[in-house]
């Protein structure tokens, strides 16, 4: 569904991503993990159009989307939920969710989508008139998810959705991600909680210093001894990647 090839991107004069290759399969959850500075969030910014690639390609369902505007990428069926502060705090919950359907010109279509996402995320109906900034972190996440689904996207890109959530809210959030996948959506997830993220994923990817170092099922990666080295401050040498893993 989404294919990233030889991707270089960064800020100022430096490259954060240095030749990333990655494929996200249709209907799967792909979880990207890695230490701080690995380039995970930068990768998502390129996918959602917030950052232009310098070299390489990003294709979605066969069409090149690298360098397209966020609006164009939304129209293709990709929506991103950022790491934090996604909502418009002074707008109501309802207004926030309506803005998720900003590209829909037909008011009745917006209302129909709101009804659909409200079924999945009841908080949208329960707190419709309240300012989004007054909700708790977990509640805000649910509203963000509801807003993300307003355009009925094929691919949902989530950047560290558990950040700042207390355990119960995080568990609810993970359930929602599973539910999205079960409803046929594809999920590209960056997660700081490696164990939970990879446990949730159909496919796991480990990034380090702007490159993909390991790939495999979540269980395979969790079992890989190099992961321990990576998270204890070591690095994964290209040559050390086991043949069974599809390191790049």
């Amino acid at each position: 569904m989404l294919t990233i090839s030889g991707l270089f991107a960064g800020y100022g004069s430096g490259d954060v991503l240095r030749g990333v290759n990655l494929t996200v399969q249709d209907g799967s959850i792909t979880c990207v993990v890695g230490p701080n500075g690995a380039g995970k969030s930068t990768l998502l910014k390129v996918v959602s159009g917030l950052l232009r690639p310098r070299v390489g390609s990003v294709t979605f369902r066969g069409a090149e989307i690298g360098g397209a505007t966020p609006r164009k990428i939304l129209e293709c069926g990709i929506v991103q939920v950022m790491q934090s502060r996604n909502l418009f705090p002074e707008l109501t919950v309802r207004e926030n969710v309506e803005l998720g359907g900003f590209l829909l010109r037909d008011a009745s279509a917006v209302r129909a989508r709101i009804a659909t996402v409200t079924e999945q995320f009841p908080i949208v109906g329960e707190r419709a008139g309240e300012r989004a900034g007054q909700l708790s972190g977990g509640q805000q996440r649910m509203v963000e998810f509801a807003r993300a689904l307003m355009l009925d996207p094929a691919l949902v890109v989530l950047d560290e959705p558990s950040m700042g959530l207390e355990p119960r809210a995080a568990a609810m959030m993970y359930d929602s991600i599973r539910q999205m996948r079960d409803n046929g959506r594809t999920i590209l997830l960056v997660e700081q909680n490696v164990r939970v993220g990879l446990g949730l994923a159909d496919h796991g990817v480990v990034m380090e210093t702007g490159r993909v170092r390991l790939e495999g099922t979540g269980a395979e990666i969790l079992a890989n001894p190099q992961m321990r080295a990576l998270y204890l401050g070591g690095t994964i040498e290209e040559g050390e990647v086991p043949a069974g893993d599809r390191g790049r």
Partner: peptide, 10 residues
């Protein structure tokens, strides 16, 4: 209120 999020909703 949030220019980046505004871009992300189109």
């Amino acid at each position: 209120q949030n220019p980046t999020a505004a871009r992300l909703v189109g």
